[in-house]
């Protein structure tokens, strides 16, 4: 009787263990599926022309997404100009001065901010910037993406500054260096690699964002002409081409998706190796 119950418990134990392993396998299938399909379908769409030339109408063969690559890079640059200063400085506040109620509130809201849907950010920038300037623009796209970078940068900056040992701060202050200079030149440079990791992660996060760009950058078929003009971006092109009925546009959507996916994966994997090196030391 007891032996029977023990066998049953052991069987249940094995069963649950295999179900848990099965769920990992199930979760990896779509990841593998996406990578395999995007790579195989994307590679066939890619050639030199694809990188450097402008899009063509659907009935003409050829054409590329050069302006979308350019647009994505410009948007990332603009977003960084918004997101990095705000993120790093509020991260400094949280780590150096933030052990109080206001600090906890900011910390908490930064976490919540990362859960606000990206389309809301797009809509917000649309009504505040695009509707008041009466024009879709690269700048408004950069602002929308920049706001989305803030929470990641804030929290990683805070965490990496907190890892800096106090003795380093004390040594600097003992030499008569002011606290703000200590933070800017001693603490920050010690925490540098962690902060850069956070920035790279946040760029990986926004590089593929589409929803906020629909309302702001809007997309364009030509090279970027100015920051107050609509601009193209990889995710926008993927969306536009994917839902189009034209086979050669759909093929190009896979090519653009391949480039975007490589970008995002390289950033993520790069961050991981950087972080690993740091912890080992």
């Amino acid at each position: 009787m007891i032996a029977k119950r023990i066998t049953r418990r052991k069987i249940v134990d094995k069963l649950v263990s295999s179900l848990a392993l099965l769920s990992v396998v199930i979760a990896i299938i779509p990841l593998a599926g996406v990578i395999i399909f995007v790579t195989s379908k994307g590679l066939s769409a890619i050639n030199l022309d694809f990188f450097i030339s402008l899009p063509k109408p659907p009935d003409e063969i050829g054409g590329g997404i050069g302006n979308a690559i350019q647009g994505t890079l410009i948007l990332i640059g603009l977003a960084s100009m918004v997101g990095i200063p705000i993120g790093v400085l509020s991260g400094i506040y949280l780590a150096e001065y933030g052990d109080n109620r206001f600090g906890s509130l900011v910390r908490f809201m930064a976490d919540v901010l990362s859960g606000v849907p990206s389309i809301i950010m797009g809509l917000f920038v649309y009504v505040t910037v695009v509707l008041t300037t009466h024009s879709f623009s690269a700048l408004s796209g950069g602002i929308a993406l920049g706001i989305m970078m803030i929470p990641v940068i804030t929290r990683t900056t805070e965490e990496s500054i907190r890892l800096v040992p106090n003795s380093i701060r004390e040594a600097s202050m003992a030499l008569g260096v002011r606290r703000w200079k200590t933070i800017l030149f001693v603490v920050l440079s010690t925490a540098k690699s962690g902060i850069i990791t956070g920035i790279m992660l946040s760029i990986a996060r926004i590089a593929g964002e589409t929803a906020p760009l629909l309302f702001t950058a809007f997309g364009s078929d030509v090279w970027a002409t100015g920051l107050n003009q609509p601009i193209s971006a990889l995710p926008l092109v993927i969306y536009k081409y994917a839902i189009s009925p034209y086979a050669n546009w759909q093929a190009q959507a896979w090519g653009a998706a391949f480039i975007l996916l490589i970008m995002v994966l390289v950033l993520n994997i790069g961050v991981r190796f950087m972080a690993r090196g740091r912890y080992r030391r």
Binding site: G33, V34, F37, V38, T210, L261, V264, N268
Partner: peptide, 23 residues
Amino acid sequence: LSFMVELLAAVPSVVYGLWGLFV
């Protein structure tokens, strides 16, 4: 393994859409 699961979150949503639509 947990890194691979986290990579699922890194794939842009429009790429999921493309894959979803055609595969």
